[in-house]
Amino acid sequence: MFSILRSMGLTFLHAFHKRDTIQYPEEKAKLSTRWRGRIVLTRDPDMGERCVGCYLCAAACPVDCISLQSTEDENGRRYPDFFRINFSRCIFCGFCEEACPTYAIQLIPDFEMAEYNRQNLVYEKEDLLIDGQGKYPGYNYYKVAGMAIGGKDKGEGINENPPVNVKSLLP
């Protein structure tokens, strides 16, 4: 009986406590940099698209809300022809970011993407692509991948020897 009265008293005392509510939208919450919010596609330090269209994000997505088609420019650089995220299905789990081998897809601290029309939650590549490197500056996938692309021939990548001279028998 006493414990009931005590808990009522304690509850009553909360009337004089400070309120925890943050008065969003007037007052914004502080989000950590690792907040899993809106998904963006970033660019590498040379402002090239980081996404190479490897489909790993799509495969990792538990709700299958990513769909893309990879294509290639005339120099052999892969990029997504289209890249579509259906945010009305997205659960912001961040698996796509984990799966991405090129740091292209990133979740950023922004969640203010409500829409009156659900169709507007379907984001295409132009809605997703940003002009920056996002959370992982400095990484350029093609610099460490073996493929030759425009501006980087075979053997010009990081940690690569120049192409083998097949005709040489020297060790």
């Binding site: 495969a59 299958d64 809300c65 579509r84 259906n86 299905r89 379907v122």
Partner: peptide, 16 residues
């Protein structure tokens, strides 16, 4: 079983 994009591949036509 790994098929991807089920809920996005036709989303540009209709999100439902």
């Amino acid at each position: 079983h790994r098929f991807s994009g089920r809920t996005a591949m036709f989303a540009h036509h209709n999100v439902s």
